[in-house]
Design a binder for these strands. Structure first.
Lengths: 205, 205
DNA sequence: ATTCTATGTTAAAAGCAAAAACATGAGGCA
DNA sequence: TGCCTCATGTTTTTGCTTTTAACATAGAAT
């Protein structure tokens, strides 16, 4: 086969792929459109046939990430059924697992500074991922006495925040804040204590 | 007074000040050394007399931020004494207040991608801020039966993570994830539930 | 077969980080 | 007082980046 035809064939995917790798390695700041183009075997200007520019390329990587993320959360949720508690805890673990398995996507989504309202599709992908977590929280909420039950959206926001905080501060090596505990344990124990606070699991280790 | 003398007088501070403003407005990616120099009334090259480069300028802003942050946490901790619970909750609120009052510092610290181990001073400033929170957590831990008391460092890591997650996801407008609740309420309720899970506050709203 | 159009390339403008060579002026020292 | 020196800024240059415009190619459609 020849070096490369004039037409790449599926440059768009190749560029996203390259962007993901580079973002994961060099961070959202160090990532350059030119380098992604070179890695895809193409000149920088070619990128503009498929993306509006550097930001748009990152945004598309993030979009892809949110879709994968939503799928993972969905799958985790299903895997825990019919136990509301098992389903919920599985989604929590899925958050960290996603950050580990898809660092490029994760960075594009949460550390690149792109707005989730950049495009309707992106906003919708975010909303969907959110909805899965909120559903898991809502299911689990049913086991709380109705009068002292927090809104499911607040419940899920707490979990999302704790998960995100653990990943950002202790899992991703960039900040370097080495905690004495593995992030997985940290998150699991944190969520455990939180759920105990809601009366959803009995007060024993 | 003349336009400006050949020697600025205190260019270093002026540059940090400019950097903080610009970072807060344009984000860590949009911030440029050149623009900070211009805003300080100086050519880009002058910056290199006071900083090693762009990264170093950001790092110094972050360092200054960690010092202020540590001071705020310390003050909040003291203000809550002698009640361990009040002191602890005050430090939690201080986290969010800091992010609101010093956006430039906050971004330089947590969103610019600089490593906390970049310099010994930076690492030490981080360690100090950490220590305040850990002390507050440790004090409060004393009220937990010893056998089911998590390590104070884990305790404080949970709170730090939740606080950080709330700020990142719901307080800073950039991501745009508007939650239906004010971040302050979200954080306060989240910490409340967590503390209940530890048996540190009685099970009523 | 010829044209149209999607998808590339070259070339060029504008901006940035960083380093080198040069300029200025303030403080120390004879 | 007058010179020297060195800290602090400026110009200038290099090599990168993003982005746009003009041009080239080949696969598809007519």
């Amino acid at each position: 086969m020849p070096k490369r035809a004039y037409h790449h064939g599926n440059l768009k995917s190749a560029l996203i792929e390259a962007a993901l790798q580079l973002i994961a390695i060099k961070g959202p700041t160090g990532f350059t459109l030119s380098e992604a183009a070179k890695q895809a075997g193409v000149t920088p200007a070619a990128v503009y046939r498929h993306f509006e520019g550097r930001e748009d390329l990152i945004a598309e990587a993030a979009l892809q990430g949110y879709v994968i993320f939503g799928d993972l959360m969905e799958h985790a949720y299903q895997s825990g059924q019919p136990s509301a508690l098992a389903a919920f805890e599985a989604t929590g673990r899925a958050y960290l697992a996603f950050a580990r398995k898809f660092p490029g996507h994760y960075i594009a989504m949460f550390e690149s500074g792109i707005s989730v309202n950049r495009t309707p599709e992106l906003a919708q992908a975010v909303a969907r991922a959110n909805a899965v977590l909120e559903k898991a929280a809502s299911d689990l909420s049913q086991h709380i006495p109705e009068d002292k039950r927090p809104p499911a959206s607040m419940f899920s926001a707490h979990i999302w925040a704790m998960s995100h905080g653990v990943v950002e501060l202790f899992a991703r090596n960039s900040p370097g804040r080495a905690s004495p505990f593995p992030p997985e344990d940290l998150l699991e124990s944190g969520i455990g204590i939180y759920l105990r606070g809601l009366g959803l699991i009995p007060p024993d280790s």
